[in-house]
Design a protein around this nucleic acid. Structure first.
Length: 282
DNA sequence: AAGCAGCACAACCGCAACTAC
DNA sequence: TGTAGTTGCGGTTGTGCTGCT
């Protein structure tokens, strides 16, 4: 008996989110906070699976997200953290406020990786690329491909599977070794020491966000993409980036969400958004 | 103007880890 | 301790945009 799928696939919408769906999800999240993702779509009136809602919220709609290019400092930090943590994007992202693991991963794969290669640095090992190491990687890649091909060829009956298991077990693939290495590295005392030198550093998961917690001041670099310059004085209230889809709405849309009345935190949240909307160049 | 390639990024998929029972 | 459900993570894919030929 297989595991029940995370959501009923039939009748659920897939693909890009519409502004209307975004609105429903944001409305729900800000009203009720983060709860059981599985029930979110039903309660929010969305024809999406919970997983899709979670992804959309964490990667795109969360009000504390910073959008736009990474600053030089952020990029350096990503490279530094990647050298210590490997492809553990969520850990890396947790060190960059307002950035998501998905975003970091995309930026790494599309930009930083190439940049490092251009600079003659292996993005995997963070060591200078020499012809010999390049050759080694090619060789490892070839071996992996060969092994994959064998797996495809072998029909998985007992003896052949045993033989395959034996092969796989007797010599670790480069992938496995890299994985082990990346898993082990955070436990490396030197790495731990360097990480702990940063007072905010914590490898724990990012805590669940409440509306009052996601109010973060928006620095000038983060605001540059969507706000006019008139709002960046130091006496200004904290500002937040709005998801693009929300820029499409009027203030009535936000104030009309109703049912959110009590908390000061929410009021300040509204104030910030109101402020942001007023700053936005239409 | 059309076709193509490369790029960026949102979204999906499958698996592992975690949790509750 | 085992099982089922839920969540989080990382790899991968799909799609729209842009620049080049």
């Amino acid at each position: 008996m297989g595991r029940k799928p995370c959501c009923e696939k039939v009748g659920l919408k897939k693909g890009p989110w519409t502004a209307e769906e975004d609105k429903k999800l944001i409305n729900f999240m800000l009203t009720y906070g983060q709860c059981c993702w599985r029930s979110v779509p039903k309660l929010a009136g969305l024809l999406r699976c919970g997983k899709s809602c979670r992804l959309r919220w964490t990667n795109y709609l969360r009000p504390d997200l910073r959008r736009g290019l990474l600053s030089d400092d952020e990029e350096k930090l990503v490279i530094e953290l990647h050298s210590q943590l490997g492809n553990r994007w969520s850990k890396i992202a947790s060190q960059l406020p307002g950035r998501t693991d998905n975003e970091i991963k995309n930026i790494w794969n599309s930009r930083i990786k190439k940049k490092l290669k251009k600079m003659g640095i292996d993005p995997l090992t963070h060591k200078p690329i020499s012809p010999s190491t390049e050759e080694l990687h090619r060789h490892q890649h070839h071996q992996q491909k060969e092994q994959q091909r064998r797996c495809m060829d072998v029909s998985c009956d007992g003896d052949e599977q045993n033989e395959l298991d034996y092969r796989m077990g007797s010599s670790k693939t480069a992938e496995e070794e890299a994985k082990e290495k990346s898993t082990a590295s955070p436990r490396d005392p030197a790495a731990d020491a360097s990480l702990s030198s940063c007072p905010e550093f914590c490898t724990d998961e990012v805590p669940m966000l409440q509306p009052h917690e996601i109010l973060i001041p928006c620095d000038s670099s983060a605001c540059s993409s969507s706000c006019s310059s008139a709002s960046s004085s130091s006496s200004s209230p904290p500002r937040m980036e709005l998801p693009e889809s929300m820029h499409l709405w009027g203030w009535d849309d936000l104030t009309g969400w109703g049912s959110i009345d009590q908390e000061l935190t929410w009021k300040s949240y509204q104030e910030d958004w109101k402020y942001d909307l007023f700053c936005f160049d239409y």
